[in-house]
């Protein structure tokens, strides 16, 4: 089992390199630090979301409410912090958004585990309800005057360089958050009883129950963590784009799920790794962020994304089925 997974990631990595060389070959500006730094920054929000989706897919479920939760978390956080004219450390908005996301995630877990409902339906409902609640009771306007700590966070670079033309490029510090969270989720999934329980539950729920695994607890753990990650991704997104727009991230779920599946996670559950997921995210970010560089006309960009996605998924699936034999 482990062998196949490793193989899957290896092939994914090859596809990623191949794509990079194709793009870099047609326009060597691709290899410029300006572009590479920018691609890393673009993958942060999607990457954090994908970690959550990986968890839930491994557990045999699915979650499509996370973009709505992310928006709910960051919007309320920003609105409240603006109201109290917050100027403290940036950890506070992050913690707030994460906490709101966690609570929403626990609500999903409660509905799924108590009433034995299908996760797809539950998360479709909660996502829609949360969005509606936000717009009806909290606000619909875009907030563009974010609290200063969040603006400072968006400007935080771990490396900056002034180019010969006087322009500045920087490697966004937000990428460190993605690295830290990836390591944390990988550790939880691999090394803890809870994480192994999530795999077992996704592999065969009935067997997991019979083996005496605390299935309700696992639901709370999984969906709570997905919520926490969504809340974090939300506040990072809002800080990086310097706007709190309650209409952002609509429809983000499909792209993130595609990245996770591309990364080798099985929609039937019990299978998937953090490294594969991150590679899947990189691949999608690379494709989406290189269409202008390659010079594909706007009309054809969607076609190009679709073709590359299908080809990449087919290749990894074919590889892993061969490896399984």
């Amino acid at each position: 089992m482990d062998k196949i997974l490793r193989k899957n990631e290896f092939w994914l990595f090859c596809i990623l390199l191949l794509m990079a060389f194709i793009v870099g070959g047609s326009n060597d500006a691709f290899w410029s630090r300006t572009n590479l730094f920018s691609l890393f920054k673009s993958s942060v929000v999607m990457g954090i979301f994908a970690l959550g989706v990986l968890l839930v897919i491994v557990s045999g479920g699915i979650d499509i409410s996370f973009p709505a939760f992310a928006v709910f978390s960051f919007y309320i956080t920003v609105k409240y912090l603006l109201y109290i004219k917050f100027t403290g450390p940036v950890v506070i908005p992050f913690a707030m958004s994460m906490a709101i996301g966690t609570l929403l995630g626990l609500m999903n877990a409660f509905l799924i585990s108590t009433f034995k409902l299908i996760p797809l339906i539950v998360t479709l409902g909660t996502g829609s309800a949360v969005t509606g609640f936000l717009r009806a009771f909290v606000g619909t306007g875009t907030l563009s005057n974010l609290p200063q700590p969040l603006i400072d966070f968006s400007r935080w670079n771990i490396y900056t360089e002034t180019l010969s033309d006087g322009s500045v490029i920087g490697f966004s510090g937000s990428f460190l958050i993605l690295i830290a969270l990836s390591l944390a989720v990988a550790f939880v999934l691999r090394r803890t009883t809870l994480g192994r329980g999530v795999y077992a539950m996704g592999g065969d729920l009935t067997a997991a129950v019979r083996a005496g695994l605390p299935v309700p607890k696992l639901y709370y753990f999984t969906y709570g963590l997905v919520g926490a990650l969504a809340g974090t991704a939300g506040i990072v997104h809002c800080s990086l784009i310097r706007l709190a727009n309650p209409r952002d991230l609509e429809g983000a779920e499909m792209e993130v799920i595609a990245a996770v599946v591309l990364g080798g996670a099985s929609l039937t559950g019990g299978k998937g790794t953090v490294s594969g997921t991150i590679l899947g995210v990189f691949l999608i970010v690379l494709i989406k962020g290189s269409l202008i560089l390659v010079g594909i006309p706007t009309d054809w960009q969607k076609v190009a994304i679709g073709v590359v996605l299908i080809t990449a998924t087919a290749l990894t699936a074919y590889r892993s089925s061969k490896g399984g034999r």
Partner: peptide, 13 residues
């Protein structure tokens, strides 16, 4: 967000 990313990319290209 898409505006921001596309413009950054165009500036590179």
């Amino acid at each position: 967000t898409i505006d921001y990313q596309k413009i950054k990319e165009a500036l590179v290209a």
